[in-house]
Design a protein around this nucleic acid. Sequence first.
DNA 1: CGGTTAATTGAACGCATTCAACACGAGTGG
DNA 2: CCACTCGTGTTGAATGCGTTCAATTAACCG
Lengths: 217, 217
Amino acid sequence: MTLAYPLEDPRTAAPSRALSDVLDRLGVRLAYAKDAEIYAQEDEVEFLYQVVSGVVRTMRLNADGRRQVGDFYVAGEMFGLEPGPDHQFTAEALCDCQVQVVRRAAVRALAGDRELDRAILEATRRELQRMQEHVLLLGRRSAREKVAGFLMSLAQDHTEDCVQLPMGRQDMADYLGLTIETVSRTLTQLQGDAIVEFPELRRFRVTRWAALEDLAA
Amino acid sequence: MTLAYPLEDPRTAAPSRALSDVLDRLGVRLAYAKDAEIYAQEDEVEFLYQVVSGVVRTMRLNADGRRQVGDFYVAGEMFGLEPGPDHQFTAEALCDCQVQVVRRAAVRALAGDRELDRAILEATRRELQRMQEHVLLLGRRSAREKVAGFLMSLAQDHTEDCVQLPMGRQDMADYLGLTIETVSRTLTQLQGDAIVEFPELRRFRVTRWAALEDLAA
DNA sequence: CGGTTAATTGAACGCATTCAACACGAGTGG
DNA sequence: CCACTCGTGTTGAATGCGTTCAATTAACCG
């Protein structure tokens, strides 16, 4: 199996040492090919997951085929932290990737480990924060604002001037509640306004940060 | 102060006995008039809150005046459980209401109380679940589907056939990412299709559950 | 190279928005 | 009791943004 993205050190983005340790010790590392399903909506919530390498997306498929992408997870991030007994979302490998998986029961057996409990709470809170931001992105915003906000959230952590886009246009569209055509048009429009530029399809650079921030506000 | 809604027993909808006890013992009960601010976005996250009576809404005000309602909280529910050091949302009294407030530091002093820690995690997970559902409601759905989904979420818990709508049309609109006009039109349309009926402005009955569920799917 | 998928572009349509007018109810005061 | 106002909700007509469907171009990989 060839990895589309280099293997990163989980600790850089890891929720916490304690939790990572438990995952490493009690879990197994699984490899998933691009578009492979990691868990399905309606499945019982049974495991905790941490991305080791690659990118994972969560999404929900509607009866009539419409798709809503929940979020994207990169190396070091945990996912599958859903409340309720069943998964609301499906998790899939966005590209070939490796995932560390551990049974919840195994983690629960260590309950009382204060540091561990705290780490799980922290991870859940981080997840909550991401959802809050997603709600704000999906609310009453124009396509321009949505796309700008999305690029912003990808770019703000990166120190390098050129940012990788792990996902395709369709995934962006389904994340933002737009069609792929609208996303495409909006991107060319943002380039026309010299706010961002795309040297490649999946790599972009912010040329006018102030303008992008205004849109994303 | 007169209360627009009767005082309810928090325990019926309470997150957990342990947490409610702590809130009762260490917190204070405050009264807020309709539209009063409980905390503001950008404020430091300092307290935990539980609705005793009435209804609370959280919302975020954009620079250009657009409003996004985060959620509505009724008696027994906790709110203000935001990750991060600062509040992303403002909390306001939707109607006259009473709120039990406790300092986070006071709760943290009891850390190690296993039951309490668990209760806080549970409350956070419930909050996460609500956000997930909100994301799904805001995604690629028509106005009909959004409004239907909203009414559905209000109606599904209620055993009585007539459901109270605590919030006005503008709050519904800002929750669903629509305009007040669209919400109003959609409601009359749903009545025209004999799916729901509104004997009063803020009280409705579901006449055709199957049709409503289809829309909300 | 062809063959395939992904992304862009174009034109027509439709749904939600916008701006405006109107209806309704509650509260106030003559 | 009526007239008045204010807040809230509904309805109408025109506009516009994003969608839809279709065609074209670009990237990727054998």
